[in-house]
């Protein structure tokens, strides 16, 4: 077991090293501003961090992420459960869902800015509208597959609405909420950058736009690295432990 784990660790490290080596060699061969050396990117990254520029823009993006993600999850759970439990509501709104699922993200973003102006609430609304249908569809699936036997048990023992929700329904929805969270974060990250690029004057998306215009590839890559690190921290530091905790009871 230990030897195996060690082997896997080394392999992972080796693969990362290979990637960096390939990058380094390619950059040396090309000798172009459009592909800086890894060392240059690292230096730029360090400078951007030290100057406070990168943390500020990353922070703005994270704040927007947090706001839009929370709104989309709360609304999505509520609507998803409602649609999953009431066939009539579902039949009525199913087409709406289909339409919203298929509107391109860029269209929603532009429309939100056109209709509500280039401000913060329009930006967040655009992200929420893009994310919401996905959450609803996932949670609706969860609400449909609720165990009827357990709901009957809760009803006959008079657990009441709140206790039933907390102890009987929520644990069954949890895997679906985690699924929506995972896919949602991946989606929101990407959309939020476009939102910032089009209509905000701070945040990662705005910065990337600036670097694009300046042809500053080193900074572009430095910000990307920061991005990857943050996502990994959220994934391993927050999502995986949450998931493990919820799966304890499984055989």
């Amino acid at each position: 077991m230990i030897a195996q784990a060690f082997g896997q660790r080394t392999l992972a490290a080796l693969s990362l090293l290979t990637l960096f080596a390939a990058w380094h060699v390619a950059a040396l061969l090309l000798e172009s501003r459009t592909l800086p050396l890894p060392a240059t990117v690292a230096a730029t990254f360090w400078q951007a961090c030290a100057s406070g520029e990168l943390p500020y823009h990353l922070g703005m993006t994270l704040l927007r992420l947090l706001a839009s993600f929370s709104i989309a999850m709360v609304l999505g759970c509520a609507i998803g459960v409602a649609l999953g439990r009431h066939a009539g509501l579902n039949a009525f709104f199913d087409n709406w869902l289909l339409i919203f699922l298929n509107v391109p993200a860029l269209v929603t973003i532009i429309l939100c800015y056109v209709w509500f102006g280039l401000d913060e609430s329009a930006a967040i609304l655009a992200v929420v509208i893009n994310k919401l249908p996905n959450v609803i569809v996932t949670i609706r699936e969860g609400a449909r597959s609720l165990d009827q036997d357990l709901l009957e048990m809760a009803e006959s023992y008079r657990l009441g609405k709140w206790k039933t929700l907390r102890h009987v329904i929520w644990p069954q929805l949890y895997p679906f909420v985690m699924g929506a969270t995972r896919s949602g974060l991946a989606l929101i990250w990407k959309i939020i950058l476009v939102v910032e690029l089009l209509g905000r004057s701070n945040g990662m998306g705005y910065q990337l736009h600036v670097f694009f215009q300046l042809f500053d590839v080193a900074s572009l890559l430095a910000y990307t690295v920061a991005f990857i690190i943050v996502i990994q921290i959220i994934e391993t530091g927050l999502l995986k432990p949450l998931e493990r905790k919820a799966q304890r009871w499984r055989r």
Partner: peptide, 13 residues
């Protein structure tokens, strides 16, 4: 009311 169903209906979590 206490209801003992044919299957145990315990909450697995």
């Amino acid at each position: 009311i206490a209801y003992m169903f044919q299957n145990p209906r315990l909450l697995p979590w």
